[in-house]
Design a binder for these strands. Structure first.
Lengths: 142, 142
DNA sequence: CAGCGTGTAGGTACTTTACTTACATGTTGG
DNA sequence: CCAACATGTAAGTAAAGTACCTACACGCTG
């Protein structure tokens, strides 16, 4: 998997934290990359219906409260339905193992993927915001 | 993730199904790749203690019954402790979001990864063998 | 209308993945 | 004892994926 997912969560956190200071350039400074990278990921989040932007106007805004955006929503926005597991491509169709291994792996891997996604669905952007605040507090205290 | 994991399960299934006909070349025919690929993955499975081989001698044998080899064991053999999620690398340390996002993501992503691994731990190589047999039966009947 | 911002196409460097050849090392049967 | 064969591993190549950046069309705003 690429790091777009992590960037996407970062972007949404920035928009939540600094609603009036979240141009692609502002966010890029916080993420540590180029504004174009931000605009590309923002585009995926927009197409997934998680935020809205306006061409020519700086910033973006969430389409619903952070508590109603799960980490699975964000995951789907950047990864779609793709699996984290990959199958091998040319198993031998005349071999009892080769002929059936892909269907078997697809099912077993799918169950593992589903378990992962259910866990992602349990956490929202609001939870992440809370994590960030608590960690920031701890960092300043320590 | 690369397809080594799928290949690894395929290899172990072959050794279970054809204990006396599982040279790297035999297995490569079923997997649909080069014998060297098989020997490399077999090496990882051997270093993880899942099977044993002998230099110069064709074949391999499992070190314990299929019912005692979980899909998580196989996963660890080829992927180690690596996460399926990737973080971005240069968040801004002076930004309250950038300074804490990695620790937060590491924890949340870790929980999702753990859920996935627990699901993998619930299935064994014996279960996969059973899947293969049932599917083969269905395929021949249909 | 000048300056700035977004959306997106495109190019480049780097890394990963898959595949293959080559060969050192070890075993086995005649 | 040695020819044939198997494993273990290094090394090279091609293709795909990833990250990063430049360029520019299009839209807003003072």
């Amino acid at each position: 998997m690429n790091s777009q997912y992590a960037v996407a969560v970062h972007i949404l956190s920035m928009i939540s934290t600094f609603p009036d200071q979240s141009s692609s350039s502002d966010i890029a400074d916080s993420v540590g990359t180029n504004p174009v990278v931000i605009r590309n990921v923002t585009g995926q989040l927009r197409r997934a219906g998680l935020l809205s932007t306006q061409r020519g106007v700086a910033g973006a805004s969430l389409t619903r409260p952070p508590a109603q955006i799960t980490l699975l929503d964000v995951y789907r926005a950047v990864n779609g339905e793709a699996s984290v597991f990959r199958l091998h491509e040319h198993p031998h169709p005349q071999c009892p193992v080769g002929a059936n291994i892909q269907a078997t792996l697809e099912r077993r891997f799918g169950q593992a993927q589903t378990a992962m996604e259910q866990e992602l669905a349990r956490a929202t952007l609001a939870d992440v915001m809370s994590d960030l605040a608590l960690q920031d507090l701890a960092a300043r205290a320590g």
